[in-house]
Write a protein that binds this DNA or RNA. Structure first.
Lengths: 210, 210
DNA sequence: TGTACATCAGTGAACGCGCGTTCACTGATGTAC
DNA sequence: TGTACATCAGTGAACGCGCGTTCACTGATGTAC
């Protein structure tokens, strides 16, 4: 955060913030992390950013607009991390696939605010085409990974890659949202969420014959 | 709803509601269904019930207290429905297990307001011992069902029933919360959530060797 | 390089509103005798 | 059966508060000449 155009006269900040849009997003993330996606207000974000309550209206239509932007950025970051974990199937699709699963949980754990905005805040995906696109891109990584795994099976016993991607997504999301968050709603678990997911995916893949 | 002690003189209601606690719970469910668990207020519930804004304080400490009660009732209902689906493993554990999965999704679909209060409203489970107990009872059904399935396998290749129950729970919850709700946040899906879950559980069980 | 001007991105005051909460109160009900 | 009284579960007025939103404004920046 901070005022981008500080003058040389010490702590004095310029009249213009210069970076308010980004700062409001940071504010939203911070406040979501603190009180959940429903627990922050537009005025909160302005206060956090150190500007007047009217300033955010120069950058976002309203609170929902800000939240949707947070979700969109979250999906973009999420996609990049899944992408990196998959690494085009290197060194080997099976291992890379498990790496994607770990990356999923890591994201949910390390970026609970983004994760909330993306999956739990009830942001309607179809309100913003850019948001929908970002969300689709994230799922596309999973689907591509599933396809790569399926392609290594004999054609007559290949499971539908789409279904496989949906199963892994749902299992990951279920584990993340039941056990993987830091908030109050978390259930206790006799093991690490990562172990639970890895074991589940292993059993599942064995069931598919992979 | 309604005033429990209507006099015979037509539409006049008595001064006392007689059933306000229950009515407030119905109000909360209705309002959650409409606007999400974060979208209703204590005053809303009072208005819905047709009483003054101060009346709810006779029955609940505050909004969170009401919400926790809704969640507790939800878990109790949920447990009963899972219990009924399991039916002590009749006619046969494998089929009964799948029936439990269907019952899980049916509950999420038919009682989205309860489901929200239970799993998505961020109600801290440990705030109320009765709530914790009710939540544990629901999971216990799943665990018992998993144990019954495991018991039919040769002892040397039995998977841990606890883990199995957690996997099925997470998969069910993941599917329910990503695809199974009626709200705005739902993702489109090329099949019914029930089919997706059933297929997933089948693959999973095959992977376990069941 | 300097100046005039358009545009941008803030301010701060103001407004109406609904919420949470408290309070003394009061009507209805239940019970002891 | 009737009466007195305690208790319960409501009312409605009041309060302070913070939010969302609008508005005319103003300081800073960028640009044309």
């Amino acid at each position: 955060m901070g005022w981008s155009r500080d003058r040389s006269d010490g702590g004095r900040r310029s009249y213009h913030h210069g970076n308010l849009r980004e700062t409001l997003v940071r504010a939203a993330l911070d406040l979501i992390a603190e009180k959940g996606p429903a627990g922050f207000t537009f005025a909160d974000a302005a206060r956090w950013a150190g500007v007047s309550a009217a300033a955010p209206y120069r950058h976002f239509r309203d609170r929902d607009d800000l939240l949707a932007d947070v979700a969109r950025r979250g999906f973009t970051l999420f996609t990049a991390q899944l992408e990196q974990a998959w690494d085009e199937g290197r060194p080997e699709p099976f291992r890379a696939f498990e790496s994607v699963g770990r990356a999923y949980l890591a994201f949910a754990r390390d970026e609970p605010a983004y994760y909330s905005a993306m999956f739990e805040a009830g942001v309607p995906l179809d309100a913003d085409p850019a948001l929908l696109e970002a969300a689709d891109a994230a799922f596309a990584v999973l689907r591509r990974a599933a396809e790569a795994l399926c392609a290594r099976m004999p054609p007559d016993k290949r499971p539908p890659a789409m279904m496989m991607a949906l199963h892994v997504w749902a299992l990951s999301h279920g584990i993340a949202s039941l056990f993987g968050r830091g908030d109050a709603g978390r259930r206790p678990l006799p093991m690490e969420p990562e172990e639970l997911l890895e074991a589940g995916v292993l059993v599942y893949l064995r069931g598919l014959g992979i």
